[in-house]
Design a protein around this nucleic acid. Structure first.
Lengths: 157, 157
DNA sequence: CTGAAGATTGCAAACCGCTTGCATCTTCAA
DNA sequence: TTGAAGATGCAAGCGGTTTGCAATCTTCAG
C-alpha cells in the first residue's frame, strides 16, 4: 500500500516555492495582489498542517483583516487550486497549501482530543477510485478520507 | 480489494429486523418508547440510504414533531449504536440504521449534483487503519471515507 | 503619471445547522 | 394508579459561513 519511506514521510509539507511563484499564480488567475491575500498565503506557507479560518486569522497578527475577507479569499484560492480544503468533522473547514504536484494529495490522522494532525503519505486510493467510478458510471470522481484516534500525548498516563 | 459480488452489493441495506427488536433495544438502553422515537426509526427502516434531519422530518409526515426532538433523538440513538452518522461535507449530518453486524461498516459514493447515494461494500480499510494506529502510536482509531462524483443521470446528455 | 474600470475589503446583517434552557407532558415501574 | 425520570415543544442562542453594499485599492491603458 503506501510506502513508509522515512524520507518521504512529510515530502510536500514545507512548501518551498518562493513567494514570487505564488504571486505569479495569482496574476495568472487574474487575481489582484492584496495585502490580506499575501498575508494569508504567508501564514499557510509557514504551517505544515491545515489551519482553520480562525487560526489563520489569529496568525495574521498585525494585519488584522476581516473574517469575511478570509472566507472569501479561501474560496478564491481554492477555486484557483492554490489551497486545499479539508473537513475533519468538527464544523470548521481547514486549509493548507496545495502540493506542488497538483495531482498529488494526501490524507490526515487527527487526534480527537487535541486536534493534533499527522500528515500521511500520498494517497493510495486512486486506482480503486477509478474502478469504482467505472463500475457505477460516475465521472469526475474524487474522495475524502480521514483517520481519527487518540494521539500518544493524549492517552492517559 | 472489495469484492464486487453482485449479491453482496446491498447486503445490509434493507434492515429486516422486526420493530419489536428495535423496541427491545430501546428498552435495554433505558430509553422510553415514544411516538417520535418510533416514527423516526420507522422512517429510517424504510430508506436504504442516509437521511438528513430535514429529510427525516418531512418523511415523518403526519407525526410532525419538533426538529429539536429529532436532533436529540439522533444523538441518543447514535450513542446507543442504533443509528450511524455520516458527514458528506455539505453541512448536514445524515443518518442510517446500523447494520445488524455492529462491527461492519461501509462507505458511500455520492453524486455531487443530485446527492444520489450509492452504498458501497463493506470497508476494506480496517487492516490498514490498524497499521497506521500502530505506526503513529494512536489508539481508538477510526476513519471516514466517502467518494464523490457525477452520477450517470446527472451527466450531460 | 494618472484616471477609470473592476476587483477587493470592511462592516453589518443574515443564514443555516444545530444546541440548549425551561416549562409541560408522557412513559413505565412499583 | 401514581410519581419520578425521561421526553417533548417552544424559543432563544451559538458558531461557522455567506452576502449586500458602500468605500477602497490594484492594475493598466493612455
Amino acid at each position: 500500500m503506501s510506502r513508509p519511506c522515512p524520507q518521504h514521510q512529510h515530502p510536500h509539507r514545507l512548501i518551498q516555492q518562493p513567494l514570487s511563484d505564488l504571486t505569479d499564480k495569482l496574476r495568472q488567475g487574474e487575481l489582484k495582489i492584496t495585502a490580506p491575500r499575501q498575508a494569508i498565503l504567508d501564514v499557510l506557507r509557514k504551517h505544515s498542517s491545515p489551519l482553520t479560518i480562525k487560526e489563520i486569522h489569529t496568525s495574521l497578527g498585525k494585519l488584522d483583516c476581516d473574517l469575511a475577507t478570509i472566507y472569501r479569499n479561501m474560496h478564491t484560492l481554492e477555486r484557483m487550486g492554490l489551497v486545499r480544503r479539508y473537513d475533519f468533522g468538527d464544523g470548521a473547514a481547514r486549509f493548507e497549501l496545495s502540493p506542488e504536484d497538483s495531482d498529488a494529495h494526501h490524507h490526515h490522522l487527527v487526534c480527537s482530543r487535541c486536534a493534533r494532525i499527522v500528515e500521511l503519505d500520498d494517497c493510495f486510493l486512486n486506482e480503486f477510485q477509478d474502478q469504482l467510478a467505472h463500475r457505477h458510471g460516475f465521472t469526475q470522481i474524487s474522495h475524502r478520507m480521514e483517520f481519527f484516534g487518540i494521539c500518544p500525548n493524549c492517552q492517559a498516563p
